[in-house]
Design a protein around this nucleic acid. Structure first.
Lengths: 220, 220
DNA sequence: CAAATAATGTACTAACTGGTCCGTCCACGT
DNA sequence: ACGTGGACGGACCAGTTAGTACATTATTTG
């Protein structure tokens, strides 16, 4: 619109402060929001740049391409949840208690990180081709599975879990419900005229999935 | 289908045959595929037109805009599943049997219609703003809920279902697992190194969700 | 059949968008 | 203090894409 304002040495001494790490973090944060909101193809590099304190030039400087940035966003998101997962310590409560806490942890985490859910959904639209490209993500070991395996073993040994089930499959049962509540919030809410964001409904669902999983495990 | 008189005579005498319904259907079918594959913003109107036997001009003639076409695709997809849902007749088997069949129906339908699943996922990325715009979809009554309500009532009366649960919530429990298996097939498969498309795993999951739901209902 | 209307094809455009060019500025090691 | 490499800004470009103007042919109706 107006002529570029020259910020020379005198006058408005807009001295630049270099902050590579900060710049990267800034871009990544804004990009996460943009990709989660609009998807990979819907996201606009210019829009990201605008909401950053730096410019589009720097996005390409640090991340190479739109897709490179997208992958970086995914890596960050997956890294975050895996870090928390690895920290789960459920060894000192009863198997039943442990499962219930795991369910509630999953429920709460996914509830609290809708952007992560959205990114995963988006990545599935793309047949997971970008996380498959990411060495980092492919090599993230998934601690939940070990956690679940441990709980199941204890439960079976104690005789309270009578159902034979693979840890991965149980994780899917738990995860699917928690994930769906967030990922399909809008269509489900619209069609069934529900407010999936309401706290009391959230509480009800939280209890429900816990009950369902525990009963599945303890049942004949 | 192609028994129509050959009109593609060489030379310029290629007389045109009008077929409004066919044209619309053709566009809709191709568009469904394109939108389900690439999402709303990722889909290309030109790409749709190319794979149609007609031209881009007709897309705008019949559907007005890219978004108009997208909405038409959604309406078709939702219409299809509701039609089948309305046809569920589960009144003449035991409540437990009925629930199990309902679960299996949901499982099989979602398994067989990945494009529908993808469209729903995509629509959620857009906060369901397009199905909210669609009078048609908003007014589709959801027969499953009534079906479930009926089964639950019978089950409670017969004393086999001891769990108090809203039909909508139970539908969510069932649907989430079936949906997730398809919607998150690629990320889940990549991360946990599973082939969610394998028939034996599908069978296992089919049984599993059935067991889980039934046990949830019959449990204390 | 003639007029009116619906359906279709072609060529085009205006705006957008990912990506880059070129030059400037900052910071640190010596 | 100074030179070098990394950090940075803004204008710019070339390809893409949704949407349209205009012309033409098919079909229906009076």
């Amino acid at each position: 619109m107006s002529m570029a304002e020259q910020d020379g040495r005198s006058g408005k001494a807009a001295s630049r402060r270099n902050d590579p790490e900060g710049t990267k973090r800034d871009i990544l944060a804004v990009a996460t929001e943009e990709f989660a909101t609009h998807g990979l193809s819907g996201a606009r590099v210019d829009a990201i740049a605008e909401r950053t304190r730096t410019t589009k030039r720097m996005i390409y400087y640090y991340f190479g391409s739109k897709e490179g940035l997208y992958i970086a966003v995914l890596e960050k998101a997956y890294g975050d949840i895996r870090a928390v997962e690895a920290d789960l310590r459920l060894g000192d409560v009863s198997p039943e208690q442990a499962i219930r806490r795991l369910v509630e942890f999953t429920f709460d985490y996914e509830e609290a990180h809708p952007n992560f859910i959205r990114l995963v959904s988006i990545e599935n639209i793309h047949h997971a081709e970008y996380i498959r490209q990411s060495e980092t993500i492919r090599n993230l070991n998934v601690a939940v599975i070990d956690t679940i395996a441990g709980i199941l073993r204890r439960g079976r040994e104690a005789g309270v879990f009578r159902t034979e089930v693979e840890p991965v499959d149980l994780h899917m049962l738990i995860s699917s419900f928690c994930f769906f509540r967030v990922s399909n919030r809008h269509t489900f809410g619209t069609i069934f005229r529900q407010d999936l964001g309401a706290p009391d409904l959230r509480e009800k669902h939280r209890r429900m999935i816990g009950d369902a999983v525990v009963r599945y495990l303890t049942g004949d």
